[in-house]
Nucleic acid binder design. Structure first.
Lengths: 248, 248
DNA sequence: AGCCTGCGACATGCTAGCATGTTAGCTGCG
DNA sequence: CGCAGCTAACATGCTAGCATGTCGCAGGCT
């Protein structure tokens, strides 16, 4: 299915990676985190070649931890490893975007339905504090801060289920969507509506209404994908060689 | 069945692993698949130590692919690696069971809701064929065949979403639940009810009723976890961490 | 007799080097 | 001038060996 064809030449790859001392854990995990961050930040452009030699030279480690980190990235569909040929950063694929969005929607809807029935006062207070943070960020025009608070809002709800690995799974699933957003929708736009949708989710949780929480979460999460789908029609050239375009 | 893997039968710890030639892909992937199967089959008992040296000796490969495979297993929470100390097969944990069940329920509910609106005639025919397979297996008393068809039934529905990685994710999530089932509920029981629940799901899909499909799927998936939860109350000693394995 | 300490062995993690398959470029030919 | 075949470099995957940290046990001390 996913053939690693590169129709466009690859630009030079400056090894601008974050030093791995900023992360914790094993060397492999640190390398993994550093590479993942770079891929999400678009520091490593989609489709760019990712030479393991370059990586281990830039980070000052050997090839084994790099290989392990790359294997984990491949499992997350963030890189595409062609045996004995090369490793490439995953291209923007609407298929992956749809799948990631589907996954996150499934997870978050299940989470809000569950949380709506058992949410506590302290948890609601956390969400309200986070919402105030979002408002403050918008007032200050701090888009980055708003996005950080946005992510935290969703992670809070997921963590309220009591399942520890859920936030990480959701984040991994969302990576492809977020990458498409950063690359294709640089304009802030819709932050006010986003805040309003967060308020709706919180209101549903405060009312302990699973149905309303589900509807609000679904509507909220589908906004971004809808905009991206629109972009597929309007500017298909951005999704080169991915969404089953006729090619010839 | 060539089991010439054992060059020296005098081994204190016989890690009876399936020969990796039965799998496809890279060596690491094959090792990963073999170990995962052994863990799911309870061939590798929960809490048992998993020496990498033993593994690479039993499979005839070096330590790098084994290390990579074990890393992936750790990412799936199937093994617990203690740095410079040892690797252990994950113990049965009701937390993991609950989380895996939650995850699979979220995925499958989202899937049936989506599929109910777009299911085609050929897909319905596939599900009906699978259901006949289940019936035949029950008539023959082939419990293993029934479970295989059961798994395929769910994978079919997931694959109908068009998302390729969904079945694998669901399977990984379900591993902990299935492991608990195999160890704690060896009695077949409830196969007739299971078949009936599958019929209900199929009926909802035939009627293109997302609500009914969701309800049927949820009821179906929660049966097993409910039984396990009951076991936690009735026989808590089974979940007291170490699951009564005679290991040294 | 019980506890603490020091030592031995082990298991993992990392580093360096070799085999294998692919890809790109070049040369020769039609 | 275009295409096919070949050659050479390259990137990954694997194999072997070394450093690091931990766990268990024996011995001595209180």
């Amino acid at each position: 299915m996913s053939q690693a064809v590169l129709e466009s030449p690859i630009q030079a790859d400056p090894p601008s990676l974050r030093p791995l001392d900023a992360f914790a854990g094993s060397l492999s995990q640190r390398v993994h985190a550093s590479l993942k961050e770079a891929i999400l930040d678009l520091t490593l452009r989609p489709g760019a070649i990712l030479r393991k030699g370059e990586v281990c030279a830039a980070l000052g480690v050997s090839r084994s931890p790099v290989a392990e980190a790359v294997a984990r990235l491949a499992q997350e569909a963030l890189v595409d490893v062609v045996p004995q040929a090369g490793t490439y950063v995953a291209r923007l694929s609407m298929e992956e975007v749809r799948e990631g969005a589907f996954l996150r929607e499934a997870l978050e809807i299940a989470a809000v339905e569950m949380v709506a029935g058992r949410v506590g006062a302290e948890q609601l207070a956390q969400l309200r504090r986070n919402l105030r943070l979002q408002e403050a960020a918008l007032v200050d025009g701090d888009i980055g801060g708003f996005h950080a608070a946005d992510a935290l809002f969703h992670e809070l709800i997921l963590s309220f289920t009591g399942h520890r690995r859920l936030p990480g799974l959701s984040r991994t699933a969302w990576v492809h969507v977020d990458r498409a957003r950063r690359l294709l929708l640089p304009t802030p736009g819709r932050v006010d509506e986003t805040l309003e949708e967060h308020r709706a989710i919180l209101a549903a949780l405060e009312a302990r209404d699973p149905e309303a929480a589900r509807a609000a979460t679904r509507a909220h999460l589908r906004q971004l994908v809808t905009r991206l789908e629109r972009l597929v029609v309007e500017r298909p050239e951005l999704f080169a060689g991915n969404l089953g375009l006729p090619g010839s």
